[in-house]
Design a protein around this nucleic acid. Structure first.
Length: 320
DNA sequence: ACACTATGAGTAA
DNA sequence: TACTCCTAGTGTC
């Protein structure tokens, strides 16, 4: 699910729902039991994203670092106020339900569930009456729980508690992120890191130390939008081309953060635009479209492996 | 039941 | 370049 836009969106959600509150932290799956013990009962003081990584700072200067990898995800459940359905729940059994910590006894409640970072209408809020806190479903590595919000993390590639120094070390290794560095400073950083590299631009855009937050979809789509062949060595690009790529990322990232969708067909308007948003089929220029005709020139979209990932491009529109 | 895929990235060779 | 780890959904037998 996650390229940079999703992670920024998740951080926003944490800021709205949990920053400033005491968080009861557990590891229902058990694989983060030690970290959960360190964090539980502390106030989440900050939460922010840099590239594809999220950092949450808790009181006592403990930092939670989370990287979702290809398929990690945060699911939020919100307790909805509804006096008609709340109240003590009787006959509740099971270890988890019997150990609510400081968050009160399990009780019936109306609960909305949302996959964080994505467009929210798609995953849908149920609002059904269930137990609060919700029973963990699947392999929940971490559960962050406040009085009325529950965030469950599954399948992260990284989930660890760090000291401030350790957290700073990870941040230093990341390239510029438009949402963190801003357009001007970010460009200077990007140019200084990238301009002289001999690496193919298709590889470089995926290197989080060069530019943070771009994943396989944005990579393919941005190179199409720029009309650049993915195999072009970065050093062989005109500075204006490198600049155009940075500027495009500065344009696309906020749209992704705003919508929760990777929108790259920004030429579309009206019903065509809506169609592209609604159906994955029409969403992209080249990503996932191997063998299908380019929407611009009709050339069959190419597919190759680059650094172990699928690379899509249009050999007609994208030149060295 | 099993195979395969995925918007990621670290490590070994 | 290849293998490893993380999880869930979909497709195939």
């Amino acid at each position: 699910m996650p390229e940079g836009h999703s992670v920024h969106r998740i951080a926003v959600r944490f800021r709205e729902a949990m920053v400033g509150r005491v968080v009861h932290t557990t590891s229902p799956q058990g694989r983060f039991a030690r970290g959960a013990g360190l964090l539980s009962g502390r106030v989440m003081e900050e939460c922010y994203a840099v590239g594809k990584q999220m950092f949450a700072q808790f009181d006592g200067d403990l930092h939670l670092r989370v990287h979702l990898g290809i398929y990690g995800a945060w699911d939020f459940s919100m307790q909805l106020p509804d006096a008609g359905h709340t109240g003590a729940l009787e006959g509740q059994t099971g270890e988890y339900a019997a150990s609510p910590g400081s968050m009160g006894a399990p009780r019936a409640a109306r609960v909305a569930r949302v996959r964080a970072g994505e467009e929210e209408t798609a995953s849908g809020a149920s609002g059904g009456v269930v137990v609060w806190p919700p029973e963990p479903v699947g392999a929940v590595r971490v559960r962050l729980l406040t009085e009325d919000v529950c965030a469950d993390l599954r399948g992260p590639t990284v989930c660890e508690v760090l000291t401030p120094v350790e957290a700073a070390g990870h941040l230093e290794r990341l390239g510029p992120d438009p949402a963190v560095d801003g357009k001007r400073r970010g460009w200077v950083r990007f140019r200084d890191k990238a301009a002289h590299r001999r690496t193919p631009i298709g590889t470089l855009l995926m290197d989080q130390a060069m530019i943070a937050g771009i994943g396989n979809i944005y990579r393919a789509e941005m190179l199409f939008r720029a009309g650049i062949d993915p195999y072009t060595r970065t050093v062989d690009l005109e500075e204006s081309q490198l600049r155009a790529l940075w500027d495009d990322w500065c344009r696309l990232l906020p749209i992704g953060i705003e919508t929760g969708v990777i929108v790259t067909r920004t030429d579309l308007r009206g019903s065509a635009k809506q169609d592209a948003l609604d159906s994955a089929e029409n969403r992209h220029h080249v990503y996932g479209r191997a063998g299908q005709p380019c929407r611009v020139c009709g050339t069959a979209i190419s597919l190759a492996q680059m650094q172990g990932r699928k690379l899509y491009w249009c050999a007609g529109c994208q030149r060295r």
